[in-house]
């Protein structure tokens, strides 16, 4: 029985998980996460941000979880994978590969092309990442606006003023709404090109600016049992989550130890910062060399502040260097 990845809050996550477990040949830990999207109005919209640590099940034919046979800087081969050529790189149902062991454990890269036994990836040099034969992988479906939200999850409208706005943030933030006159997702600015196949990058942040009543969203998926890794821009903002569907304190997350080159400083205007989405706002923290504290307000020790599971975070690096550095975190359970 197929179960949609996004449920509109009526089906319990436990039931959803049970349904999934009955459908698959292997037994990954599955679960659901519920997010309440706060209600707003046309005149006073309210923005709720969240991120998804759970990943979807691969639906394409072929080996979805396995070990790599060989690797080049831009491709991996898996003998006998049995994939359908091009099926993992369509615009409507794109896939990524996530390495689940080895030096690149946790790294997720989009698949740009595939044959029956080879995947071509983009974004990182696989050899430089240390990917080698024998490393394990999982295919991860990449959500799109169409596949995750469809046309009716949010309030659509003939123009942006009358519709809910969905903003997708990883390194940049771009906003979309469902145009009911054109029956498609479009950008809030610029031409009304069909953007339904816009990818929602794994581990990115989704912000919903709601003009209708409050709604609950329940997402189902696989709970990761391997290291989390996400590329953090060496300069500017990266939007993501804390890595796993569990609460974590600022002290336990310890970004200052998990992102090489993290700048700690007693001055918040000098230090790198971590902003945590809370309600409709961001609360921003920095590591002063001894403990975490808010960038605004008194110098209270905030080490024990909890980042809820699925909370959106913004990592802000003040450096001017180009490129990225991986934020990695081991399985906390």
């Amino acid at each position: 029985m197929p179960v949609p990845r996004l449920l509109l809050a009526t089906l319990s996550s436990v039931l959803a998980a049970a349904s999934f477990a009955a459908d698959v040949a292997y037994s990954p830990v599955v679960g659901g996460m519920a997010f309440q999207i706060s209600g707003g109005s046309l005149a006073a919209p309210v923005t709720t941000r969240f991120a998804l640590p759970l990943v979807d099940f691969p639906a394409a034919s072929g080996v979805g979880v396995g070990a790599i046979t060989s690797v080049t800087s831009t491709s991996v081969a898996v003998t006998g994978a049995g994939w359908v050529g091009g099926a993992l790189s369509t615009t409507s149902f794109p896939y990524a590969i996530r390495f689940t062991s080895g030096s690149a454990e946790g790294v997720t890269l989009p698949i740009t092309a595939n044959t029956a036994d080879t995947l071509t990836t983009s974004g990182r040099d696989l050899v430089a990442l240390g990917v080698t034969a024998g490393d394990k992988y999982r295919l991860v479906p990449i959500d799109t606006l169409n596949s995750l939200f469809g046309s009716s999850t949010f309030l659509g409208g003939a123009n942006v003023a009358s519709a809910d706005v969905v903003t997708l943030s990883s390194s940049v933030a771009l906003s979309y709404y469902y145009n009911t006159s054109l029956s498609r997702w479009v950008r809030t600015t610029g031409p009304t090109t069909d953007r339904g196949d816009i990818q929602i990058p794994p581990d990115s942040v989704i912000a919903v600016t709601r003009k209708g009543g409050a709604i609950d969203l329940v997402f189902t998926g696989i709970v990761s049992n391997h290291r989390f890794a996400v590329a953090v821009a060496n300069s500017g903002s990266t939007y993501t989550h804390a890595g796993f569907p569990t609460d974590v304190t600022l002290a336990a997350l310890a970004l200052q130890n998990r992102i090489p080159g993290w700048v700690s400083n007693a001055a918040p205007g000098v230090a790198d910062t971590l902003a945590v989405s809370s309600g409709g706002t961001w609360l921003t923290y920095f590591f002063n060399g001894s403990n975490w504290q808010r960038t605004t307000g008194p110098a209270t020790n905030r080490d024990s502040i909890v980042i809820p599971a699925g909370a959106a975070i913004q990592i802000f690096k003040r450096g001017s260097a180009s490129g990225t550095t991986d934020f990695t975190r081991s399985v906390p359970f």
Partner: peptide, 23 residues
């Protein structure tokens, strides 16, 4: 602008908010 928001932050960084229509 059409609205603004007031947010309360408790001592464990939990929040509550209300929005106000400027009209």
């Amino acid at each position: 602008a059409s609205s603004f928001q007031i947010t309360l932050v408790d001592n464990r960084a939990k929040t509550a908010f209300a929005t106000f229509v400027l009209a």
